[in-house]
Design a protein around this nucleic acid. Sequence first.
DNA 1: GAGTTTGAAACT
DNA 2: CAGTTTCAAACTC
Length: 823
Amino acid sequence: MFTMSLNKNQGSRTVVEPVALGSQTLSDTELSSLTLTHSGEQYAANDYETLANIEAELECMNAEEVMTTEEENSTIIEVNNENDALLSDVVLTDGQQQEVQTEQIIYTTANQSSQNLILQTKPTLQRVPSTTSVQIKPNVSHTQSQSIMIVSPAAGGGASQILKISHPASASANQLQSLAQSLITGKSPDGNIVQIRSTPSNKQNIAAKTSGNITLGNVQNVKTVQSVSGKRTSHNVQQNRNVYTKMILTNTQPQTGQQVLIASSPENQQGQTIKFLSSGSSNLNMNSPTKTITFAQAQQMGLLPSNKVQHILPSSQKQTGIIVNKLVQSTSAQPAKLTIVPNSAVKSPTKILPAPATGSTKSGNSQTGSLSSTSKVMHQNPQKVIIRQSSLKSGVVHNNNPIIRIPANQTIGTNQVHQLQVPGRQVQYVRLVSTPSSGTSNVVTVGKTKTPTALQTVGVTQKISGQQQIVKVVPLNTGSQTLRTVAPKSALSGNSQRLIIPATTQIGNQSKNNTVTIPASALSQLTSGQAVISTNSNVGNIVVLPAQYLQQQTDDSKHKSQQSTPTLLNNSQGLIGNSSSLSESKMSRSFNNSETNGIRPRKPCNCTKSQCLKLYCDCFANGEFCHMCNCNNCSNNLGNEEERQRAIKSCLERNPNAFRPKIGKGRDTGEDIRRHNKGCNCKRSGCLKNYCECYEAKIPCSENCKCVGCRNVEESTLHKKSLKDLAEAVEVRTAQLSLNKVKMQQMSDATFRPPAISNTGARQPFNFLTDKVVEMTCQCLMAQAEEAERNMFDDETSEKLIIEEFGRCLKEIIESAHKAEAT
DNA sequence: GAGTTTGAAACT
DNA sequence: CAGTTTCAAACTC
């Protein structure tokens, strides 16, 4: 495992920690001797430097997608808060999110056969990234190839570069760094391979000077290199063979139908990042991209801010799809696993929606991606990627959207994999499709389970390539678990295997096997005849499912879920989410347990007429597929994807922000107060019942609201408002009384009218309640209210004073009446 | 659990 | 954009 630390707060300062690569410790000087080879050719590191000198300015690929300063936080890396041990190896010190240059680093953990290191830097407000120094410490022994992946936004361009470097197991940290510095090859928007050289001024000195450090920040100098045949750029580092250097530069234009992995944060999108990694090296089994939603699609769906998305195109054009977070896989065919470690303090719900039907989705042979929102460090064969989300303010609930990362697995044929992330939403879904021809594909979904549950295993049988594979489904929960096999719901015809997996779930204890974790919400897919495909060819295919799913499976499929809901809640994986979303808040109320455990954060819907394809349906509104709901005629599932896509499109046409969280931060003041973006419109509930979305979200009504008689105000404002409300109420009441009086008078005129003068000839008291008297009375009450406000009296005292004033007014009226009568 | 109330979403 | 209708959740009994 590599360990690196990044200190954002102090600009470029590099935090270096002792690193051990595998069992070996490499000296800094080893770096200089490192050479790169490509296709049998050997290149010295300097050669690549020379290549890097080919200057061509690569326009910022995502020029239009520059981060806006409006967003304060970026959500790029998810951090697993459960596994501190895991994080211990990964040291990421990012300080304030809103700081100038924030960079995030993602790196993978090494496994036996390969080590992967992913470094990710995050673009921030400033266009010129500061230098980021990363120190890498390999401390895990390994056998074969190792890779380093560096993802960093281009300076100011918003484009992300991904550098993948495969290196020999024996490579030292310095060597790795040197590789990273020496050559970065990417793909420009026009399809050219580009090389990016960091800090050109110190090319030769980089290795020595920055020994132990990788500078990612200055990617400003992008060099375009002529397209390599096959547009693949990979280099073997000759030093111990098995070393590859690969750099992939993100491209914002998914022109060729390539799909883009999208990660976005709903509210605070500042640092949203989309990463796509594709295997460029033939030596690496990364040929197949995983299809994801296109960028435009994501934007269309409102899931992805247009100015904050970055994509990385696969280096190979053959690949029609983009592999997201695809790790370099060694030829050992070991399954790659992606682990997303959610930021500890902040849970960011993420949703993945199927791409709109209109979006072109090419699919080709690709490896299915694996998505995991959380995972523990695995020491097993599967490669792992740990993605850590930084930049979220810890302890503060945000609307920040988590990032969806999908490790590449094989997906073959026309199957499509769509990923969408809905900001502020609680559940991430990944649909993985693999064709039978592909043999195996790893589908990894991560569900996070905090509460240990009994281990249950479900076996899903499916035929792939005429061969029946069994997928073992085990509960996410860690701890000793017993597996049991459950008969698959239905045999799947080979080509259309689908899995929808909530990204928020986390991989539980997968250390022992190649396991796939499937959140409960994804189970519905299985029940509908869809199967989870295990991609691991050589290892037992294991799919981890929530325990409750097993129950569901064993039960009649008709049972829709209210039964299972409680169980689900208990075992449910924690939502990584943004507490700011309305849905989340709903969830928190209704499913407190699930909030943290959360597989199924929300209540099942009960839609009957909307087919769950309108925003009436909470599931749909949250970008989730219905699962274990009580709805009738539900079309919010993969089986009706086209229809669903149309519905999504329709909703977005009506409201481009339809799928964005309703609750966000107040922007005016910058205060960290959640508020309803649209505001409520309550009239009768006083905003004190759950009918009110503000109240439901446990936030006070704001100026955005158009509610009437609102009582859902902040404590501080309650006092003032109560007085004003009281005065207003008096005024309204007075007006009503006046109106009633008029009406009464009219009625009296028509029917019964008490004599204005009593039998004694005296004037009746009510005749003294003229409009002027009422008005004067109201003025007195208002004056009293204002005075009480000035005096800062508490509500009770103020009300008392006003009432007393009212009594005094009445008394005066009566006295006046008596006087008039007397005269 | 049926019926009512409520307000957002959808529709006109 | 306002008014009305539809819808599903919240609420009441």
